[in-house]
Computed example of a mutant assay.
Amino acid sequence: MSIFKKSVLAAALLAASFSAAADQLADIKQKGTLICGTLGTAEPFSFPNPSTREIQGYDVDFCKAVAKSLGVKLELKMISVAARVPELQQNRVDIVAANLGWTAERAQQIAFSDAYYVSLQKVAAKRTSGLKAPADLAGKRVSATKGSTSEIAVRQAIPTASTITFQDPPAAFLAMQQGKVEGFAVSELMLVKFQQQVEGSSPIDILTPALSNEYWGIGIRKEETGMIKYVNGVLEGMEKSGEAKQIFDKWLGTGTQYKLQRGFKIEPIKG
C-alpha cells in the first residue's frame, strides 16, 4: 500500500472514530434510554430502598440528572467495583457513576468527568487492637475492596502491609471483625457508617491521617468526546443551580446520619 493510500485510510478511520463519538448522544436519544453502571451495594451512593428495593442514592441522583437532561429513561445496571472500567470499555453501559475514583492508570483507559464528589480514603481497626495511625499497620493485614482506590491507597501508604481484597466493602469489613485482618480501608464516609453499626458491640476506630484524597468522576469512554463535554455541562449546571449541593445534603449532609459538610465544588480533576 502506498504512503498516500495509508494516509487516506488513517484519515478515514480517524473520521469514523470522531463520527461514532459524535453520534453517541444521538444514539442514546434514539433508543430513549441512558444505561448507567452503578454498584447498588454502597450506601448512601447506590443501594436498595428498604421498602421498594429500588436502587437509590447520591450516584443514582447524578445518573438521573444526566438522563433527565437528555429527555430519556434511566436504566441502572448493577456492576462490581472490579468490573467498572471493563463494563464501560465493552459498551455494556453508557456511563459509570459508581464510587469511581480518579487514578492515573484508570485515566489511561477511560475518560473522567469533572469531580462530583471528593472522598477521603481512611483505614480503621478494632478499638481493642490499640492501633492509632495507618503506620501502625506496617507488616499487618489490611482488607479492601478489589480494584478500588482504597486498595491502591493501602499499597502506597503502607507498602509493607499485606492487602487482602474482597468483592465489596461489607465483606472486607466482616474480615476485620472476624480477625482475618487487622485493618480495613475504605472511604471515610463508609467507615462512619460501619462505626455506627458496631459501636455498642465491637467498636472500631478510624485511624488518622487519611491515606489519600480521592476525586470521583463519572466514567465515560475516551472516544466519546461529545458525551464528555455534555456530561460536564450537566454537572456545571447542577453546581450553578445548587442542585449538586442539594443532592449532597440529601444523602450526606448535616441532617443525615453522616453529618458531613460539603467542602468541595464540582471542578475538573487535575491529574
Rank of each mutant, 00 (worst) to 15 (best):
S51W: 00
Q30C: 08
A11K: 07
S19F: 13
A21Q: 14
A12V: 13
L34T: 10
Q24L: 06
L9W: 02
A20K: 06
D23R: 06
K31Q: 15
P48K: 08
K29H: 09
A11G: 15
N49D: 15
E54K: 13
F18V: 14
Q24D: 10
A11S: 14
G57T: 03
T38P: 02
K29M: 09
P48Y: 03
F62M: 06
R53T: 02
P50D: 12
G40T: 00
S46Y: 01
A20Y: 12
V66H: 01
T52F: 00
S19V: 15
A11M: 13
L39N: 11
F47R: 06
G37I: 11
A20Q: 10
Y58I: 03
S51E: 15
A22E: 13
R53H: 09
K31E: 15
D27Q: 12
Y58N: 08
A21L: 03
A15E: 04
K31L: 10
P50Q: 11
G37Q: 11
N49R: 10
A65W: 00
A16V: 07
T38D: 06
F62G: 02
F18I: 13
A21Y: 03
A67F: 02
L14R: 10
Y58Q: 04
C63H: 02
L25R: 12
A10E: 12
L14A: 15
D61A: 08
I28F: 05
A16N: 07
K64Q: 15
A12L: 15
N49E: 14
D61H: 00
K31P: 04
A12Y: 03
N49A: 06
I35D: 03
S19N: 08
G57A: 07
D59V: 00
A67W: 02
K29V: 05
A20T: 07
L13N: 05
C63G: 05
P50H: 13
D27T: 09
E43N: 07
K29I: 01
T41V: 06
F62P: 02
T38N: 11
V66T: 01
A15D: 02
Q56C: 08
L39C: 09
V66C: 06
A67S: 09
L39D: 09
C63F: 00
A65N: 04
F18C: 12
E54W: 00
A42T: 04
S17I: 11
F62K: 05
D59K: 01
Q56T: 12
A21F: 01
T41Y: 14
K64V: 05
E43T: 06
S17P: 00
A67G: 07
A65H: 05
D23K: 10
F47L: 10
D59A: 07
G32W: 08
P48E: 11
A22W: 04
V60W: 01
A42K: 05
L25N: 04
S19D: 07
Y58T: 08
I35W: 01
A26M: 12
D27M: 12
E54R: 12
T52I: 00
V60P: 03
A20H: 10
I55L: 13
L9V: 14
R53E: 11
A22I: 01
A11P: 02
K29R: 15
K29L: 10
S17A: 14
A16K: 04
K29D: 13
V60F: 00
Q24S: 14
Q24V: 06
